[in-house]
Each structure stands twice: as structure tokens, then as C-alpha cells.
């Protein structure tokens, strides 16, 4: 097991290095620079600004200097926000995005899991079709449509919930969490239904039933654990996806998270911020994939045995 983890961590290094290199040069190739403006920028001012950000040096020495900064855990100063480092901006946005991602995952797991399990118990009946149709709609409905719809209904017409913000007014976390979580809830519903269907046809379930256990105990005590393995395998990438992909929801609901900084950075050509966020998020994605692999191995005795032998 440890060898497996160590091996996967070693594999991650060239991946992240490649991400850094490609991103570094890609953002420089993109037309337009951080100091371009519709106003006239005096050459003296531009030179002063460029010197402050090492842009006056050759590209390759900028690259090696950046790698040196990274090795010290420094993402460098932001171009857009003078006086703020990228570390500070990520530090400000990450807790919010992580909290949003956590709630969204909660929504996804609870709603999706329940729907999937319920559907799997009576396949090809109304109990199956209704939640699965809802799941299909959930997958198809983009968050930039669902978010404003929820706002219109619950925020404006019914006036039950705040239309925006994060942690300012009680209840403002609910609509964004549902909006972000719903697409994942739909995936999880389908995954858990498929997983449960497979497990429910296994011999050990028949044995459990033969022992005279009530059906709900058969489901909760015997089937669930096996049936949810595909869901667990999905959780790691899903959480990473939630972190990296929450910018639409953050924009709709005015949430001060990492996603908004990330997208703004690209529009502003905030080189260090684009790089810093990309490197940071790709590291997270690699780590979460690893975590979900470990978790899946822990839940699946067959895989566990396989690692034990190695």
C-alpha cells in the first residue's frame, strides 16, 4: 500500500512540472498583457511596472526564477492587485470555495445517493423512472441556468432566501450549494443505482435474504457498502472538479471564492495569479484522485488484497 502511494506521488511530480511549464509559456503567448489599457500608458511607467515584475528579463530566466519561487512556496505578487501576493489571494478564496464544494458534495451525495438507492430497489418501475428522469434533467441542466432559476423562484418571487453572498446573511449558502451540487447529485444517482443493481443480484444478498433479514437491513447492512464503491471512486475527482469548476456558481451568487479569482486572472492577464491557481488546483486534483483510489481500495477487499501482495 505504501509503495503504491509513494509510486503515485512520484508520478505526480512530472505531471505538475509539465502543467507549470505549459501554463507559464501559454499565458505569455496569449496576446495582450497585464498592463495594456485603453488609456495611454507612458513608456516610463510601463518600464517601471515591468521591472517590478521581472518582465524586463529574458523569458527563460523569468521561468527559472519562477520555479525558484515555487520551490520556496511563493507564487509571487499579483499583477492585478498591487500589494497582494498570489498566496494571499488563494488563501482568501480557497476556504470559501472549499466550503462551497463541501456543501455541494453533501447535497450531491445525500440527494444523489438516496435517489439512486431508491431507484435501484424497484428497477423499471415508477420508483425507478421518476428519480432517474430527474437525474437526467439534473445532468443536462447547466448551473448557469439552474442558478438564476433558483434565484428567481426562491430569492425574488417567494423571497425566502438571499440571492447572493456567502456567510453574510443566514441562508445565503443554500442556493449556491444546491446549484453546484445538483449536477453531481445526478451523476451520483446514476452511479449508485448501477452499483446497487449489480450488488443486489449477488449471491451474498440472496443469502442475507434467505437468513430472513428484513429488506431494509439487507440494503443498509449488506448491499450499500458494495453498491456505493463506484460513488466513492467518483468523489475524489468530483471534489476536485467542484473546486476547480465552481466559478460559474461563484459568479452567479457573488461568492468570493477561488473560481472567481481564477477567471478574473485570465481576463486580466494576471500572469502570476493564473499560474499560481493552475498549479495549486492541478496539485489538488492529483491529490484527490490519489485519495479516492486509496479510499476505494480500502472499501474493496479484492483491491486491498491485490495491494497487500505487491
Amino acid at each position: 500500500m505504501w509503495r503504491f502511494i509513494g509510486y503515485r506521488l512520484l508520478q505526480a511530480i512530472p505531471v505538475i512540472l509539465a502543467v507549470i511549464t505549459v501554463t507559464f509559456f501559454l499565458v505569455r503567448i496569449a496576446p495582450g498583457g497585464p498592463f495594456d489599457s485603453e488609456k495611454a500608458v507612458m513608456p516610463e511607467v510601463k518600464a517601471a511596472l515591468e521591472a517590478q515584475y521581472r518582465l524586463d528579463q529574458p523569458l527563460f530566466s523569468q521561468y527559472t526564477a519562477y520555479l525558484g519561487d515555487l520551490a520556496r512556496g511563493e507564487f509571487g505578487p499579483s499583477f492585478k492587485y498591487p500589494g497582494r501576493s498570489v498566496n494571499e489571494l488563494i488563501g482568501a478564496g480557497l476556504p470559501v470555495t472549499a466550503e462551497l464544494g463541501f456543501y455541494a458534495l453533501l447535497v450531491a451525495v445525500v440527494i444523489g445517493g438516496l435517489a439512486g438507492v431508491i431507484a435501484s430497489l424497484k428497477p423499471n418501475t415508477a420508483q425507478d423512472y421518476i428519480p432517474m428522469t430527474a437525474a437526467m434533467i439534473g445532468i443536462c441542466m447547466p448551473s448557469f441556468l439552474l442558478g438564476p432559476l433558483l434565484v428567481l423562484v426562491f430569492g425574488i418571487h417567494l423571497d425566502w432566501l438571499p440571492v447572493s453572498g456567502w456567510g453574510d446573511i443566514p441562508g445565503d449558502k443554500l442556493l449556491p450549494s444546491i446549484t453546484l451540487g445538483s449536477a453531481y447529485a445526478a451523476y451520483i444517482a446514476r452511479l449508485s443505482r448501477a452499483g446497487m443493481l449489480e450488488v443486489m443480484s449477488q449471491d451474498y444478498i440472496r443469502t442475507a435474504r434467505a437468513k430472513g433479514l428484513p429488506e431494509w437491513q439487507v440494503v443498509t447492512r449488506h448491499a450499500l457498502r458494495g453498491g456505493l464503491i463506484p460513488v466513492v471512486a467518483f468523489l475524489g475527482p468530483a471534489f476536485a472538479g467542484l473546486l476547480a469548476g465552481s466559478f460559474v456558481v461563484e459568479t452567479i451568487f457573488q461568492i468570493p471564492g477561488l473560481g472567481r479569482f481564477y477567471v478574473q486572472a485570465a481576463f486580466n492577464r494576471d500572469y502570476t495569479m493564473i499560474l499560481g491557481t493552475t498549479v495549486f488546483l492541478s496539485t489538488l486534483i492529483v491529490l484527490f484522485n490519489l485519495l479516492s483510489d486509496i479510499l476505494a481500495a480500502w472499501m474493496n477487499p479484492r483491491l486491498r488484497a491485490q495491494f497487500g501482495e505487491q
Binding site: 456543501y103 453533501l106 447535497v107 451525495v109 445525500v110 425566502w160 432566501l161 443566514p170 441562508g171 445565503d172 449558502k173 443554500l174 450549494s177 443498509t220 447492512r221 449488506h222 450499500l224 457498502r225 456505493l228
Partner: peptide, 24 residues
């Protein structure tokens, strides 16, 4: 065997807390 089911309770409670804290 119960590990999966043990998660369900706290998960639901957390979700409920999110709701109750909200709908005022």
C-alpha cells in the same frame, strides 16, 4: 458492516443544519 450506514446520520444532520440555518 455498519460503517456505510453510520455516515448517513451525520450527513443528513449536516444537511438539515444547512437548511435550518437558512430559512429564516
Amino acid at each position: 458492516d455498519n460503517s456505510a450506514t453510520r455516515w448517513v446520520g451525520p450527513l443528513l444532520a449536516a444537511l438539515l443544519a444547512l437548511c435550518v440555518g437558512s430559512c429564516g
